[in-house]
Design a protein around this nucleic acid. Structure first.
Lengths: 195, 195
DNA sequence: AATTTAACATACAGGCTGTATGTATGCAAG
DNA sequence: CTTGCATACATACAGCCTGTATGTTAAATT
């Protein structure tokens, strides 16, 4: 039985430190916002020093990027996990509901929809989204068009516009009643695309 | 004939100073973003001192708010000015085109769609938008529903979702070809709402 | 076992924000 | 017209934060 500092491999140390930093940073970025959170505060919460932070991340923004990447992946994972089968439009609706459910986790709207675009820029946020949640929407829409369930439209533009609608709905939703209202309206928007 | 310091009334001094600060701040916020723009830089460009800035504005964020308010009003003014008549849906489309045209003015997407929500929060941005461009969209949709040109749907939610789609399109648009593409897709979205 | 390299910790320089204090000018009252 | 107050600034200061440079310890390599 060992105490305090157990001998760890470098890889283990790195992973533990990075995880602690990302966890502490996520919590503070959510609570106070990116600009109002200082690195001294983050490292104190993570139980390391600023030296460790700047060893693993180029700067504060790089740490934020890691937090956003992590969070975006979690949202996409939940959508994929809950994806049902049925008609293409049914799948789109179900995916949307899963998205709303995932975005209801506290802090996600702030990280992914408010601070993210401002800190990292829309181009980088689009790139991150395209690897995660945005990818599921794109595949759903492409499948629906393929099946002839919605009219053929430029996929890039349609994804951007519907994705924006989903995002804004997630931002507006604060309780179950609002969830149902937005689900209904966005469902109508999608159904309006049928041939 | 007088030189240099002409005797000005206090009201004139105030208006001139505020205008110079807002103009300089707008330029720098657009060029470098809110966080990367320092108040020393702003006051230097405006030809005043930091004392003047903090006399007229509570803090840097209040100055940013004034810039955003000004810009948002300019967008709404352009939409109203270009609003044509015709069927309700035609007016919506024309209003959308005017919106895209107004948002093409350099810096507006960054101020109103990227930094604005992050710095001021979505609630405050919604309030500002509701007084300006968002108001025109809401009135257009309400009129279209009244005329029976689109199905009756919850107005608040529909405004939020379509407003988000317009915003994202404005962010994505970088040239005329893209403008046409997004106009077409957003037109299809609106037309899908017909009874 | 010796050497290199990774993973930190500490110290420092520069810059920025907001506030406190000082000054000059407009303005209103007598 | 001058006397007193308020407005519109300018200057100086304190505190904090970011990023970097330097030092130290432990792991990995040879």
């Amino acid at each position: 039985m060992q105490e305090g500092t157990v001998s760890r491999t470098n890889r283990e140390r790195t992973e533990a430190t990075r995880a602690a930093l990302i966890k502490a940073a996520r919590s503070l970025f959510v609570e106070k916002g990116y600009a109002e959170t200082g690195t001294p505060e983050i490292v104190a919460a993570a139980g390391v020093t600023r030296g460790a932070l700047y060893h693993h991340f180029a700067d504060k923004q790089a740490l934020f990027r890691a937090v956003v990447e992590h969070e975006s992946a979690a949202v996409a994972e939940e959508i994929v996990r809950k994806s049902s089968d049925g008609t293409a439009i049914e799948m789109l609706i179900a995916g949307g509901n899963a998205f709303f459910s995932a975005m209801a986790v506290p802090g996600r709207t702030r990280l992914l929809l408010l601070d993210g675009p401002a800190v990292l820029g829309r181009a980088e946020m689009d790139a991150i989204d395209a690897r995660h949640a945005g990818r599921t929407l794109r595949e759903g829409l492409a499948y629906a068009m393929e099946q002839g369930e919605i009219r053929p439209l430029p996929l890039d533009q349609l994804c951007a516009l519907l994705g924006a609608a989903f995002d804004r709905a997630a931002l507006a939703i604060r309780n179950e009643a609002e969830t149902a209202e937005y689900q209904a309206v966005i469902g109508d928007l999608i159904k309006g695309l049928r041939p």
